[in-house]
């Protein structure tokens, strides 16, 4: 199955046409976060024939994801497969013409520029503002367009950041990064799947417009709430004193990278990213941890459960520590069970 027949309906649409389809087939898109928003965006862009898709996600699939994260199955959840891998596997069966590069990693200051630099457009599917501040700075530095999207409960919002001279950046929209814990989480607010579908679909529509050079690309902030029957378009102005887009000060990007921990939205777990990333020796760890509890390994993950401690370890040394109340408790478990 190749080419024209597959895309017939969208080539017939006058907004895209033959010329637009060619541009899509030559486009390179990076989707950061392949949860609810990211899976829907990836699915739509893959079916639309975007030539290259990089899917970045640090997380693995759990049963609570299935309600809204459309590319995953019960088997993926039972195996705790990494989201980026499962999404890429699924989509490669949907459209084998698209080159898909799954990356199982946390997008952070040490790797964000590498992840975005060779892409024409970045789409936001992340669940936290720290990563969005980072995407904003890296994209401004390298003049790469990106699309913000966020959703929670029954509401969501999206906005394009096009790197135009007088246009605002994400930092103009949100001058201060909220402290982790200073905003509600998916745990406390919940989310219904029409809103993630709608926000992801708006992001996808804007992506298609940006990549095909449509004049109707949106320059406003859009907020939608499906329970309250509203959609609101708001003008956002550039802040003439914005550290990022006015002064080119990249505080998040330039902060020295060290070992760090992050609470994971929607889960009672913490991610630990060690400073020196080196391959975890699953065989040696399995032998050692097997004396303390139940260990399961796959190519992507080592799972441990025993004596009130539960975690997942990735081959690159990152770990998700489950059911811990704070960073200190998570780091203690990492040190005692995994080491370094």
């Amino acid at each position: 199955m190749t080419g024209k027949e597959r895309y017939k309906r969208q080539i017939t649409f006058e907004g895209i046409g033959e010329a637009g389809q060619k541009k899509l087939s030559e486009a390179r898109v990076c989707i950061i976060g392949t949860g609810a928003l990211g899976t829907i965006i990836a699915n739509s862009l893959c079916r639309s024939g975007v030539g290259f898709l990089r899917l970045v996600d640090r997380d693995y699939i759990e049963e609570t994801n299935l309600q809204r994260q459309t590319l995953f199955t019960e088997w993926d959840a039972s195996e705790n497969r990494p989201k980026a891998i499962a999404a890429a596997d699924h989509l490669s069966k949907v459209n084998s013409e698209v080159q898909i590069e799954p990356i199982v990693d946390d997008a952070n200051a040490s790797n964000i520029e590498r992840l975005i630099k060779d892409a024409d457009l970045i789409l936001d599917g992340v669940d936290n503002f720290e990563t969005r501040f980072l995407i904003n700075e890296a994209c401004h530095k390298h003049k790469i367009r990106w699309i913000y999207g966020g959703a929670a409960a029954s509401g969501g919002a999206t906005m394009n950041f096009l790197q135009e001279d007088d246009a605002p950046c994400f930092r103009c929209l949100m001058p201060e990064m909220p402290e982790p814990g200073a905003y509600p989480t998916c745990n406390t607010a919940g989310v219904v799947n029409p809103i993630t579908g709608i926000i992801a679909s708006y992001e996808t529509a804007e992506a298609l417009k940006i990549l095909t050079g449509a004049e109707s690309v949106s320059r406003r902030y859009l907020a939608v709430d499906v329970w309250d029957n509203l959609s609101e378009y708001i003008d956002i102005e550039k802040n003439p004193d914005c550290p990022v887009c006015a002064h080119r000060r990249y505080e998040t990007l330039d902060s020295p990278f060290s070992s760090y921990a992050a609470a994971l939205c929607g889960q009672d777990s913490w991610q630990i990213v060690p400073e020196n990333r080196r391959a975890a020796d699953f065989d040696a760890l399995s032998a050692r941890l097997g004396r303390l509890g139940e260990v399961k390994t796959s190519k992507f993950l080592l799972r441990f459960r025993g004596d009130g401690v539960s975690f997942k370890l990735f081959p690159d040394g990152r770990a998700m520590i489950d059911e811990v109340k704070d960073e200190v408790a998570a780091r203690k478990i990492y040190a005692e069970y995994i080491g370094q």
């Binding site: 609810a36 992340v126 669940d127 936290n128 966020g150 959703a151 509401g155 919002a157 909220p178």
Partner: peptide
């Protein structure tokens, strides 16, 4: 005046 929440999740 319209008051907007932070849209954080993904």
């Amino acid at each position: 005046v319209k008051v907007f929440p932070r849209s954080f999740g993904g």
